Amino acid sequence: MGNLYDYFSAPDDPTALAAFGQGIEEAGLPLLPVKGIDPYVQLGQAESMLTGTPYDDVTSLPRFNRLLSSPEDESRWLVTLTDELRDALAAVRAGGFAEVAETWSHIDEFGGDVPPGELAGFLMRLADLAEEARARPEPHRLYCLMSL
C-alpha cells in the first residue's frame, strides 16, 4: 500500500499538534495529501537541491523532521518541516521546478519509478502551500502527518 503523507501549514507547533489529534481538514488548515514522498529522505534531498545546502546540513537544522507527536504512536506521526524549505519553495515557484525534479527523480529512494513531471507537480503544489503560509500576516510553518 505505501505510506500516506499529509503536508500542511499551521501558525505554530501547538496548533499543528491539535490538528494532528482533531484532523487537519477538520481544523480548517490547508492540506496537501500525497502518497510515497516522505519528508525525511526524499523531501530532505529536494530541500538540499532547492537551497544548495548539503543534505547532512539540512538534516541538522533544528526543525528538520522534529517529532511533535508521541514517539509511542505506531502508525501516525507528526513532524515539522524547516522554514528554509518553506522559503525556498516559495522563492523557486516562479521559475518552476523542472530542473530540480529531473535531478530529484534520480535519487535511489525513488528507484527510478517516479516521472520528473509528477515530482515537479508535487513541488508546485507544495510551493503553493508554502507561498500561502508565508503570505499570512503571521507566517505559518509547514508540517507533515505520516500514516502507515
Score class of each variant (00 low, 15 high):
residue 121 G to K: 12
residue 62 P to L: 09
residue 132 E to A: 15
residue 66 R to N: 04
residue 131 E to L: 15
residue 105 S to I: 04
residue 40 Y to T: 08
residue 109 E to T: 08
residue 67 L to Q: 01
residue 11 P to T: 10
residue 92 V to T: 07
residue 34 V to I: 03
residue 2 G to A: 15
residue 34 V to E: 14
residue 124 M to A: 14
residue 18 A to W: 11
residue 6 D to E: 15
residue 98 A to W: 00
residue 33 P to R: 02
residue 1 M to K: 10
residue 48 S to T: 07
residue 24 I to L: 04
residue 15 T to K: 04
residue 146 M to A: 01
residue 1 M to V: 14
residue 139 P to R: 10
residue 46 A to P: 10
residue 43 L to E: 09
residue 2 G to E: 04
residue 141 R to E: 13
residue 46 A to N: 09
residue 140 H to S: 06
residue 146 M to Q: 00
residue 30 P to I: 02
residue 121 G to Y: 12
residue 73 D to Y: 05
residue 107 I to Q: 03
residue 7 Y to R: 08
residue 27 A to I: 09
residue 142 L to Q: 14
residue 142 L to W: 03
residue 143 Y to S: 07
residue 101 A to Q: 07
residue 18 A to L: 09
residue 147 S to K: 03
residue 60 S to N: 09
residue 60 S to M: 12
residue 37 I to H: 10
residue 91 A to P: 13
residue 106 H to L: 02
residue 1 M to I: 09
residue 146 M to S: 01
residue 2 G to N: 08
residue 33 P to C: 01
residue 102 E to K: 13
residue 94 A to T: 06
residue 70 S to I: 06
residue 70 S to M: 09
residue 66 R to F: 01
residue 133 A to R: 07
residue 143 Y to H: 00
residue 31 L to S: 05
residue 43 L to G: 12
residue 46 A to D: 04
residue 138 E to D: 14
residue 44 G to I: 07
residue 131 E to D: 11
residue 93 R to G: 02
residue 46 A to H: 10
residue 51 T to V: 10
residue 62 P to T: 06
residue 32 L to P: 01
residue 90 A to L: 02
residue 37 I to Y: 14
residue 53 T to H: 02
residue 12 D to G: 07
residue 128 D to V: 11
residue 82 T to H: 09
residue 30 P to W: 02
residue 38 D to H: 10
residue 145 L to Q: 02
residue 107 I to T: 03
residue 15 T to A: 14
residue 107 I to L: 02
residue 92 V to E: 00
residue 103 T to L: 05
residue 124 M to K: 07
residue 23 G to R: 05
